[in-house]
Write a protein that binds this DNA or RNA. Structure first.
Lengths: 110, 110
DNA sequence: GTCATGGTTCGAATTTAGTTGAACCAATGC
DNA sequence: GCATTGGTTCAACTAAATTCGAACCATGAC
């Protein structure tokens, strides 16, 4: 078979928790990731952190927090990972939240 | 004079940080406090926590986090404290944020 | 198969946040 | 004056989040 990699677990739309989403977004680095993904899906290797020297384990952990909160989807794609912002799910559960979070420019990540 | 109590420090509207606001709101207990204050100003003594047995030092700390994030205003009033949601400031800096956070009912605090 | 690339996971160390009792303070009631 | 009520602050402790290296795993190129 072409692939037997166990896909990472993602919470169902109905299981998203507002407090968990807010927490995930409350870190500047994670918020910056979300802003990048707002422009469209991105290969993880092309998703940059503020400090380019950050170890990959740290980067992976940041993605995990966002994924477990239901903010991003992380799928295997070739030898890498494809990250997608779960816009529809977020909008369905917390209408307007993403929009006003992305609108802000006071955290340096315009 | 009638009062010389040093007022608690509150951040200026222009100093509010989105990530700090999101963090403050990411705790269920704090979010529940904000929901109560959404109905109007409240004396702190009448602002209830989920566990009535919570020590006052803990309650005071919860209020401090909300105050320092710029979400609530805490003013001396008689022998107690008057808590007010900083609606206008929040709306000015993060339009729509409060509305969609208050709209959610998935955290038990409908 | 071998190698390089891209990421996850684990464990340990560090850092940060939450909890609590005790001490203290201001205002009101008496 | 004294006692009560309501709340802040401090210090110590517990709990949780973050960071990072090391080990590991799949894929794709060769």
């Amino acid at each position: 078979m072409t692939s037997d990699i166990a896909p990472l677990p993602h919470p169902d739309r109905s299981d998203l928790k507002l407090t968990q989403v807010l927490f995930a977004l409350s870190d500047p680095e994670r918020l910056a990731i979300v802003r990048q993904l707002a422009a469209g899906p991105l290969d993880m290797a092309r998703c940059h952190l503020s400090d380019a020297a950050t170890p990959k384990s740290t980067k992976s952990h940041l993605m995990k927090v966002l994924r477990e909160a239901g903010i991003i989807h992380n799928a295997a794609a070739g030898r890498g990972r494809r990250l997608t912002l779960r816009r529809d799910d977020l909008e369905a559960r917390f209408p307007g939240l993403l929009a006003c979070v992305l609108a802000d420019t006071s955290d340096g990540t315009a």
